[in-house]
Amino acid sequence: MQHFLEYDGKKIEIDGNGYLLDYLDWDEELSTVIAQLEGIDLTPAHWEVVLFVRAFYEEYETSPAIRVLVKSLSNKFGPQIGNSRYVQRLFPKGPARQATKIAGLPKPAKCL
């Protein structure tokens, strides 16, 4: 069964859980649309993490596990941002899953 996300006259293919099938279909507006579906109003603090996760995926073709995300954020932005309570507050349904979804990335593997 095919699922789509429709916005602004565009039709983007997603999986049954709302993750983009092709991460290259993404643009910033799409993040806003997905975030709204998740009940999140994107603030600059959200964007910082969303764009970071996206850059991580572009570099490594894998989404970071939570501890790797926290560590990498800490390396780049310092411990204020690179800590699990901070990202958990921004993405209450789980930073690894929710931030990747909003960043237009595929669903992280269950095992990882």
């Binding site: 570099e59 490594y60 073709e61 894998t62 970071p64 596990a65 790797v68 560590k71 990498s72």
Partner: peptide, 14 residues
């Protein structure tokens, strides 16, 4: 396929 080379580079971060 996803790039194996890129995924190898992630190992140190883990």
């Amino acid at each position: 396929r996803k790039s194996i080379a890129k995924q190898i580079n992630v190992l140190p971060l883990y």
